[in-house]
Design a protein around this nucleic acid. Sequence first.
DNA 1: GTCTATATGCAGATAGAC
DNA 2: GTCTATCTGCATATAGAC
Lengths: 215, 215
Amino acid sequence: MNALKVETEQKIINAAQEIFIEKGLQGARMQEIADRAGINKALLHYYFRSKEQLFDAIFQGTFQRIIPQFAQILRMKTKPEEMLQALLEFYNNFFMENPYMPQFFFHEIWQNPDRIAGIIKSQAMHPEELVATLKDKLPPLSDSAFFPQHMMANVMGMLLFPHIARPLFQRLFFNNDDQQYNLFLAERTEFLMNMLGGLMGGHSVDLSNAPDENF
Amino acid sequence: MNALKVETEQKIINAAQEIFIEKGLQGARMQEIADRAGINKALLHYYFRSKEQLFDAIFQGTFQRIIPQFAQILRMKTKPEEMLQALLEFYNNFFMENPYMPQFFFHEIWQNPDRIAGIIKSQAMHPEELVATLKDKLPPLSDSAFFPQHMMANVMGMLLFPHIARPLFQRLFFNNDDQQYNLFLAERTEFLMNMLGGLMGGHSVDLSNAPDENF
DNA sequence: GTCTATATGCAGATAGAC
DNA sequence: GTCTATCTGCATATAGAC
């Protein structure tokens, strides 16, 4: 029966998603995926010939849940503050609900960067366009040739760090208290907006006085 | 002969370091480590009884190369700008020379956070001390109870991101050009100092006008 | 489509000679 | 200490019955 087939496939996908994201391709066990899906190993191979293929399907799927959003925000023809707000809000919430995602992506970034780059470029999301948009919309706070890249690295770094470093950061600075940490994460969008809002408006931080002091 | 033994052990450690850092505990193969060290598998087990033990030795070693530095900088009783400068400079350079390190650490952060937390705390580096120092030295830019944690996350995120996301970031925004990317990384300390210097001095960014605008 | 049973291969670990 | 040869176990994958 076709409905049953679809249902089973979905159970597999859900289970595999969890396991792969927690343990990565290498760490995941087909047995564990089968168990969590409530079926047996043989059936896994019936639906997805190999572990690799299963992984590919999962990976592509999860990735496509977050990239289009990025492209869409990028094309919002509004003020940079609003783009930033939308960006921070969406991804911060997404990572709060999917805490394993960031480490999952970074793992893949190192294992197979070409695959990810390929997926991104196939999503109507073009890096040059992004750089150009930033150069155009941001006040010229620095004359570095890499100014847009720096700003991207800043935003993404500040956004991602509390999520990707969570297990350690929470232990060290929050008494390993889940609730406290969630509060911290929840208020982070606002905190970052406060910090960055000024920058994007083009006032506030003076970047022209280079610190050539003994360095 | 003892000198020979030490030499072999060092070869193993060097090889294992590279492999583990690139592939993680799961992804690494004892065969590959043996090959790169120029010996055979049996000898690996002679020196380190199991893969786990070998990994532990490597991990502890690399970790202790970068934590003490942090504690030391933290205790420099100087202006926050100078602490920040020392911090950025040291770790940015370290990660430029050891590009696989960040991902290696994050991998472990998710696999075994307690181990890392333990090592850190055993290094005369106490989280509460750090938080207190920051609260004391930083101008009160925000009244969030987590203000020090936010600032740490900011600095660490901005510092780490270009390293940990390198394979993808370089492909997307630097035509996958190693030289260009190294230039980018090299100028990053200065860029960040320019951006953050103002904040630490206590002027520039107004964080008091919360953006309660339709949000 | 789903199962049980089995094959295949590989990686970690050991035995034992030198 | 260092090697070759071998064992053991486990994980992926397949065969074949229902």
